[in-house]
Design a protein around this nucleic acid. Structure first.
Lengths: 114, 114
DNA sequence: CCGCATGCATAAGAAAATTACATATATTTG
DNA sequence: CAAATATATGTAATTTTCTTATGCATGCGG
């Protein structure tokens, strides 16, 4: 029972935020963390995840390091130094979006009307 | 300079919310109100608006009343009585989504780690 | 008269996600 | 040990949703 439909459009910014927080993360880890933090509301599927990560890498926002864990390989992502500003900008936009949405849903009870 | 891309997926819920608040609203009015409430961040275009409204109407969530203002006609939308529950459910989901997103961006300083 | 705001609507295309699949290793469970 | 499940990455076909570009018509201000 995911509520993915509402998260549409925020996926790549969410990925950037998680990666920024942890320093580096790999795909599978990102899906688990997102599920945790949203109480299961956001269930990122591979079909959405990997294309999004690849796109961010292609844009130069992320760099990768492949690491062997035993016989299996993980692909770690981290924010690219050169475009760190752009990444942070997108994360900030996400935060501003969240605030706007809150504002929208719970408009400040103006001083005017009782 | 809209930030529409972040709002993807939330449009129909946002429309429901606005209509619920005002009792009834017409298309053009909705675009203006959304722009107002989000300081211009959400600029709903007709190409997104009307298909979304038509879909909600087709789903039975909205009913319409066409009204003549002088020589021009407005199409007012209001929540359908029969499916008012579903509409409110979607609005609640939007609110929960907004809270989750806030939580996600500003995690409560957990008890766990120091 | 011309441009802009109001007001509704559709159509072609792009973007982003869903769903389904493919592959492979590691761990748990009956 | 065999089978199921978790870990781990990826692609492809399809669908949903939005953008961009139109189209039509009224009303008002300069």
């Amino acid at each position: 029972m995911s509520k993915n439909h509402l998260y549409k459009g925020t996926l790549s910014a969410i990925l950037l935020k998680l990666i920024e927080e942890q320093g580096r993360m790999y795909g599978y880890e990102l899906t688990k963390r997102a599920r945790e933090l949203t109480s299961g509301d956001l269930d990122i599927t591979e079909g959405a995840l990997y294309p999004a990560l690849h796109k961010l890498e292609a844009e130069g926002l992320l760099t990768t390091e492949v690491e062997k864990i035993g016989n299996r390989s993980r692909k770690y992502y981290r924010l690219a130094d050169e475009k760190g500003g752009e990444a942070r900008k997108r994360i900030d936009e996400l935060a501003e979006y969240a605030r706007n949405l809150q504002q929208f849903l719970n408009p400040k009870p103006g001083h005017g009307a009782a």
